[in-house]
């Protein structure tokens, strides 16, 4: 079952429909995420009006060029610092982890607002790992966790993983919440299956070979590459 949040719009629903459809091509899928990112960015822009506080945007490598870039296009005037992470998911017994194998992290130390964006918040394994890394490097006053789709209780579970001093800072922004998974353990309708495959990045291994254009552009602003 899918329920809509207060942030959901008809445009968001239409784009989510494209993600869920198996007929959507790779390019259309990518563009849908970019557009969803813009819609999320529009909402977040209203939530962080203060330009004085440093603002950081963090995302996974696979989300950088579409979802995160769309979001960034709405928030560039706030001059965010950017962090991109490459995670490698692994399951051992009944436990899952997603160690960070690589990162691109600008100076986040002075940023007071952290926005983490993810294609879908399901087990929250990746977001949790990225958050652990980020809060060791910065002291945000607000942590906005944004995604087009949340799985049921993902927000509650994520809050439970952190002490109250951290989890009390969490704000969740999503368009829809899904409550079911299929036989492969994928959220349905979710984002239409494996995000790596749908984005044309291969699988969970090959996607880590991808160096986002976002990272290349940001590097060019900051240093010779």
């Amino acid at each position: 079952m899918r329920t809509e949040s207060k942030y959901c719009t008809n445009d968001a629903l239409s784009l989510l429909g494209k993600l869920a459809s198996a007929d959507t091509s790779v390019n259309e899928y990518r563009d849908s995420f970019f557009q969803l990112g813009k819609l999320l960015g529009f909402q977040i822009d209203k939530l962080i009006p203060d330009l004085q506080n440093g603002f950081a945007l963090a995302c996974s490598s696979e989300d950088s060029d579409w979802l995160a870039s769309g979001l960034l296009s709405q928030l560039e005037h706030k001059d965010p610092a950017v962090a991109v992470f490459w995670n490698e998911r692994q399951t051992i017994g009944e436990f899952t982890m997603a160690p960070i194998v690589r990162s691109y992290e600008e100076d986040l130390s002075q940023c007071k607002i952290l926005v983490i964006v993810k294609s879908i918040i399901f087990t929250s394994c990746v977001v949790k790992t990225q958050l652990l890394r980020l809060i060791s490097e910065m002291t945000p006053e607000r942590i906005i966790i944004a995604s087009p789709v949340f799985y049921k209780d993902a927000d509650v579970h994520l809050k439970n993983e952190f002490p109250e001093a951290i989890s009390d800072k969490f704000e969740f922004i999503y368009f829809v919440m899904d409550t079911e998974t299929n036989e492969r353990g994928e959220v349905i309708p979710g984002i239409g299956g494996s995000v790596y495959e749908r984005l044309g990045l291969g699988n969970s291994i090959t996607k880590n070979k991808y160096v986002p254009d976002l990272v290349k552009k940001r590097r060019a602003l900051c240093y010779d590459y």
């Binding site: 051992i92 017994g93 436990f95 982890m97 160690p99 790992t129 990225q130 652990l132 890394r133 060791s136």
Partner: peptide
């Protein structure tokens, strides 16, 4: 880093749980 320590703890838990 804490996320690195978490991976270590998870690995041990995963092994010992079985």
């Amino acid at each position: 880093k804490k996320d690195q320590l978490l991976s270590l703890a998870i690995t041990f838990c995963g092994i010992c749980s079985s």
